[in-house]
Amino acid sequence: MCVASEYPMQSSRLANMAQDLFSDLDIEWTPVSTGLIKGRRLAGSITFGILFLFVAAGAGFAIYLAPAPWGTLAAITVTLPILALWVWFWFWVPRNQASWGYFEGEKELLIKSGIMFRRLVVVPYGRMQFVDVESGPIASANGYASVTLNTASTETAADIPGVPTAEAHRLRDRLTELGDFDDSGV
C-alpha cells in the first residue's frame, strides 16, 4: 500500500544518503531570523563571560598561591577549555541557526533542525492544543521570538526559536485558526 503524499521526494537517491536525512524532502523551508545569531551570541557570551570571570579569578589565586610552574599550569588548564568552548559556541550558533526551518503544509506543520543531531517533527494542525509565543529582553531587542506548538503529548518538541516577531504572531494566529476548525482527536 503506497500512500500519496503532498510532500514531494526527489526520486534520485544520492549515493551518500546517510549524509542528508531530509535533503530528499523537496520542500522550501522557511528559515528563522538571523537575529537569532546575534541574540544567542550575546546570551552565550554573557554566560561564558561570567563563567570565565569566576574561573579566571580562581586561576589568579592559583598562580599567586601555588609554587611557580604549577599555579600557571593549573590556571591554563581550567581557563583554556572555557575559551575553547566559547569559540566553538561562537561558530556553532550560525550553523545551528541555518539548520532551523519550518514549512506550513496543507494539514501539518513541519519543523526541521540540527546538524549533528538532526530532527524533523511533523505536527498535524488538528492535533494542536495551543500556541505560545515567548521572547525575553535579548530576543525582543533582536526582533525575534520563539513559537511553541503544544499538542496533547508532552513529547511533541515543536518549538521554533528565532522567528521574526511579526512573523511569529502571524504564524501563531494562523496555526490557532487552523487548529480551531480541525477535528480535535483528544
Binding site: F130, V131, D132, V133, P137, R172, D173, G179
Partner: peptide
C-alpha cells in the same frame, strides 16, 4: 521583560 503570549483555539 520575558514576554509570553498564548493563543488557544
Amino acid at each position: 521583560i520575558f514576554k509570553s503570549s498564548r493563543r488557544i483555539p
